[in-house]
């Protein structure tokens, strides 16, 4: 059986916001080390990998591998019934076909209980190779969100060029073109806004902006985002969750023949 408690329902609500536009239904794979999700979008261009480590919950109990097949639209409906500050407990039995969700107000004077019907989902699990990326850029997640929003005014595609000087995002479309360059920050007072670049080799990649805009739904989860890139392979866009795990998105590049 599974029993996992989070001090704030807001976290699960935000996680759902971060994936529900990419994925309609997926398995939440629970085991004694935590809860993991791996799912592709319907066009098989992007992949989401989510990890919530057991030690981020208090308490956490799961004594065997338990795949919980969840329709995210349905889960979203139930999570709308939770207050952001409610204590959230999820429970599932080994042979059950429902997920129990309990929302408890902080002073425990209101307890609401919901059951979400589970489904059998036959999902293929992809092997993600361990990659040494040529460029790893850590930057403000809010800045990344703004750049994606701004450049989507210009084009459906975005070109990312990373050199040791900085990272340049550019777009070119019918109205004209535009670009935003972030220089690697030297000594900055505000760590959250710094841009840092680890570069083995310059990279230049083209991506669909639509997917980046889905990924930036994770912005409330972390003040930082890490973009890991090598030429001609999928970009890894990672939001780390404090003391809990991560949301990772992989997006296949656009490549000419």
């Amino acid at each position: 059986m599974l029993e996992a408690r989070l001090p704030q329902a807001k976290l699960l609500k935000s996680l759902l916001e971060a994936i529900k536009e990419l994925v309609v239904e997926c398995n939440f794979d629970c085991n004694d080390s935590g809860i993991a999700v791996q799912a592709m979008d319907s066009s098989h261009v992007a992949l989401v990998a989510l990890l919530l480590r057991a030690d981020g919950f208090d308490p956490y109990r799961c004594d065997r591998n338990l795949p919980l097949g969840i329709n995210l639209t349905s889960l979203n409906k139930i999570l709308k019934c939770a207050g952001n500050e409610d204590i959230l407990t999820i429970k599932a039995s080994d042979d059950g076909d429902v997920l129990n969700l309990v929302f408890e107000s902080k002073d425990s004077d209101r307890i609401s209980e919901y059951e979400l019907k589970l489904m059998d989902i036959d999902s293929e699990h992809l092997g993600i190779p361990d990659t040494q990326y040529d460029a790893v850029v850590s930057m403000s997640s809010g800045e990344f969100q703004r750049i994606c929003r701004d450049l989507s005014q210009i084009s459906d595609s975005i070109v990312i060029d990373v050199t040791k000087e900085g990272i340049k995002f550019s777009a070119s479309g019918e109205v004209g073109n535009g670009s935003v360059t972030l220089k690697q920050s030297g000594s900055v007072d505000r760590e959250d806004e710094a841009t840092t670049i680890e570069l083995q080799q310059a990279v230049s990649l083209t991506f669909s902006l639509k997917y980046f805009q889905y990924f930036t739904k994770a912005t409330p989860l972390s003040s930082r985002v890490v973009l890991s890139m090598s030429n001609d392979v999928p970009i890894l866009v990672e939001y780390k969750l404090d003391n809990l795990g991560y949301v990772r998105y992989y997006l296949a590049p656009k490549i000419g023949d």
């Binding site: 992007a46 296949a252 590049p253 490549i255």
Partner: peptide, 12 residues
């Protein structure tokens, strides 16, 4: 723009 690749052509 160049054609969009599938993620499954990179991850098996």
């Amino acid at each position: 723009p160049p054609p969009q690749r599938s993620i499954t052509s990179f991850f098996k």
